[in-house]
Design a protein around this nucleic acid. Sequence first.
DNA 1: CGATATTTTGAAATAATTCAAAGGCAGTGG
DNA 2: CCACTGCCTTTGAATTATTTCAAAATATCG
Lengths: 238, 238
Amino acid sequence: MTQPRGHIAEMAQGHSSPELDHLFAEGRLRRFSAGEHLITEGEATDYVFDLLGGTVALARNGRDGRRQILSFMGARQFLGAASTRNYPNLATALNDVTAICYPRSALERALETTPGFASEFRRVLTRILEAAHDHVYTVGQRSAMERVASFLLYLRSNQARFAPDGPREKSIDIDLPMTRSDIADFLGLKIETVSRSFSALKRAGVISYANSHACRIEKLDRIRVLGGRDDFTQHRGA
Amino acid sequence: MTQPRGHIAEMAQGHSSPELDHLFAEGRLRRFSAGEHLITEGEATDYVFDLLGGTVALARNGRDGRRQILSFMGARQFLGAASTRNYPNLATALNDVTAICYPRSALERALETTPGFASEFRRVLTRILEAAHDHVYTVGQRSAMERVASFLLYLRSNQARFAPDGPREKSIDIDLPMTRSDIADFLGLKIETVSRSFSALKRAGVISYANSHACRIEKLDRIRVLGGRDDFTQHRGA
DNA sequence: CGATATTTTGAAATAATTCAAAGGCAGTGG
DNA sequence: CCACTGCCTTTGAATTATTTCAAAATATCG
């Protein structure tokens, strides 16, 4: 048997217990293709997912068709934290996704019996909370252009931090596996506004792109001024 | 010595360990008056606060004076979760606040040695994350009027859930210890817009108030339609 | 290659902000 | 006790960022 992989396995690094072994033994590799749901609204919170590849959009849907994407998740991120018996959120694969699926009960037991693992898990959970707070700031305070700029910095940072084979250098080339509509729903804007912002950034030579699913940041300093992500990052590690 | 009080003590209900005893022994009662900061931006994350009374605004400030309030916290809520060595947020007392202040190190040790307590803590942390996600939805998707309506429902729910002496029935009377400016910064709106929304709701007979720091919901069903909090609550407990 | 979905662009409409001023309330000091 | 001062709230009018509506251009997929 090969080493268990994924974010949860990383959190467990250096810790061990029979329950942790049991957790990894229970992990099942699953594949989802674009458009499939890993989690649907109202579904029982019986499983958590540890992403190995692909991109997932975690969203909350309103009665009337409004949708707010809460985060875009990829390799080395996990999905499925819930305090209740049913998920309030919807997790959709944006492209082909590979994930390890663990029973929540096994995770819970491992956390209860492996304090070091639980500490690491708590730290990750806290980071997710801080990211959500960043998101509230972006959507609550920034203009459309600023939101798009800060979005590019968010992706850039995530691409480096959560690269499939471990953290790597931040790149100037940004993958955009999501549609403009997904970006709009993430930023609390409309498709057209997002498109216009991209076009304006391109026209100004701040970014360049040939197709809508990737771009290159040509003037990082300009994006930084617009996105103002430095407002926060100084307090933080990476 | 009397029973330890506060949210953290509640989480520890039914669990025990020497480290937990040590944690409570280290707790110090502190008082803050209106305008004082419990936590300032960039400050070391050496303490956590367990609120016993009063209201605290947790906010993130931008370089240029913009401010996003992330939550209003009161009795039986705790403050100070952080994944890094310095707080990215600012916690300000809106009125006279009483809190128990614990060294983070003692909390961390208690969590590492008292699994049941740690599980409870994890559940609370997850709920805080879910509240942040609600907030992203509100700020990202709702109109000004809807934000104000959902804000009233948010306060109503919190007042019941986090009443000083334990959960109680939801009331139709809402306390507003914060200013219009605080509400605006919480909802991602401007003061005038918040004021106009309150006035419109009053004019329509949906709410009533004599002064700006309290109001009564006269037509709860109308507020519910506007605020649409039911979009989510069906998945949840209370 | 044709059909469908996504993205881009333009013009008009609108919700929210900005600017400006008046009204109310709380606390201070005479 | 009242008047003064400063702050917060409310309201109005003008401005603006974003949305909405509409259509063309581009990409995607069988």
